[in-house]
Design a protein around this nucleic acid. Structure first.
Lengths: 186, 186, 186, 186
DNA sequence: TATGAATGAGTCTTCATTCAT
DNA sequence: GATGAATGAAGACTCATTCAT
């Protein structure tokens, strides 16, 4: 990716999260990114294409950082915690990306084509964990609810520590995981 | 409250949720509400005053519907479930109000004065439950995390059933509560 | 019609003729008309609606001024000349309107609905002359060609005197009519 | 002329006629012509130089095709008709060139230097016919009116058959010429 | 020669807000 | 109280033109 294109994406991630889609003007994005307005529209035909591609970019970069870690020799809970922790740490370290996904995954500006394309990759990632779920360590829950519970909990945890940074320490993060795990485990 | 004022509040609730603050023009609100633009500004000095007062109105109307139900004779879990259920049912029945709160409780348009004023009332409502928490039925968690876990879970549940309406039945709602309860209970 | 609306129409007539549709900015129209840009868009939803309504307005105002003059007692040539002269004089007196029609009657900005609506009225006007045409004073020409010859000649004459104002006198105008009349008469 | 230069001229002729000067962007011209925007500006310093040179190119190519045909042995009317017909046929075969001249001969984008330079050549072409005019076969008309009547008639005829292609046959073309000839002849 | 990324002034249009009626 | 015409600043997007490659 070209340097300016990258700069525009990074800048709009920040601004869209802070001020919303309509609350952020393309002029402001361009200025903050240090490019001309024309340059923004050179890379992104419209503001909507910008947010759409930003969505892909953001979700893919999250996925990349979380990739492949399942270790069959470890207990299932360990594996789940490791994944949960990765998401949470990532979210705390880089809250803009998570906030962006949270805010815009329901937004009409993201085309359903884009949403679908990305959703697939997530399902793929979680496929490995499926066996553990089926082996009876956790309650009998249908897929969608499990998914939403998992995600909701992660986002909730991230937001909690974002707003209460003084509370963030290993103990409290572990506690948060226990709230989650005791909820789903039998 | 005057009829037109009420109509403007109801209309903006819907529109702000669907299209965001900047995505909704005062002209559209007025037109949809069936009043003149001038009338909107007669009741609300600015667009920001409108959303600020809408926030109060919405949260108060939620609080009202959830009020006073604690029964000391029932087991603590019952009381908590009853409150949890009230919120969830309300959220499913009237998703706009919940979505609005969810979306705008972090928004800079809502003055911190307003946020504070409302927060107090919530704390008040939950005061009654404090005793139960302290009696050791649940894990030892600091207040803020408990609060966020409680709220996060409710919102998560509402959103889940909003997006999977075919899954909504007593069994699954109970299941959702169990996920929550087993998480916090010892 | 409101005063400002009228002012906008008059101004855009002049500017569209002088600088073309794309060559004239809405800002310039508004400024020249002495109104705010917002006011222009209050009366005309888009620039295209403006030119479309301007087309109607212009053609109707021409038609009005040329209306009803046929006198059965006069020779046919007299009647035709009287009409021809009215158009020519009008075009010389108020060249913007004629130039506008000339320039934009083929333009894609004028909707075909508008074009059709106006065309009808012209046909109506000329209906009275039909009898004369049929009585053999003029050559046997099919309607469309007759129409185009008539119009083409009028526009041509107007443009000629517009560009050679020093040549404009009764004698030369009469001469121009003879060029036309001797062309179609038997 | 270089191939790309030629391609740019041909493309802009078409686009300027269809969408006007301001309605056609240099980017569109370049893209349609199959060259880069930079290439367009390599051959034509500015957009205005492009249209100016296009005007010359177009008028010269018309003149070339109409050149030298006067035959002293034929009757004057024959000679005039032959010229008239050449223009009309050319205009029907290649309406873009005629439309372009028609639309832009009054345009401020064409420098008066260019206009003058071309006008001379036309006058030259018509010089040969002057004798016939003076010999009394036609009415006594001053030069400018004769010129405008001649041109106006040709353009009018071309536009008529362009818009009524089903009417175009030898008979009707001859009829059109008669309208013209009977107008100017004594 | 030829390219196309980069520019920023300029375009059409929207919007919160005011005010005379 | 209620209206909606009027405003002009601001927004998304376009465009002629330049310049490094």
């Amino acid at each position: 990716m070209k340097e300016k294109e990258q700069k525009i994406l990074d800048t709009s991630l920040k601004l869209f999260v802070e001020k919303g889609f309509h609350g952020t003007s393309t002029a402001e994005i361009a200025k903050t990114a240090g490019v001309a307005t024309g340059t923004l529209f050179h890379y992104f035909k419209t503001k909507e294409e910008l947010i759409d591609r930003l969505y892909i970019y953001t979700k893919e970069s999250i996925l990349e950082e979380v990739q492949g870690d399942y270790d069959e020799n470890n207990p299932f809970k360990e594996n789940v915690k490791s994944l949960w922790l990765k998401f949470v740490c990532l979210g705390i370290k880089d809250p803009y990306k998570f906030n962006f996904i949270m805010t815009f995954h329901c937004s009409p500006y993201i085309t359903s084509f884009t949403k679908g394309r990305i959703e697939e990759k997530f399902v793929e990632l979680l496929e490995i964990y499926k066996k553990g779920f089926e082996e009876g360590e956790i309650k009998e829950i249908y897929d969608e609810l499990l998914m939403d519970y998992f995600w909701g909990n992660i986002l909730n945890t991230i937001m909690h520590f974002e707003q209460n940074p003084e509370k963030m320490n290993k103990e409290n993060v572990d506690l948060s995981f226990e709230l989650f795990w005791d909820g789903i485990s039998r």
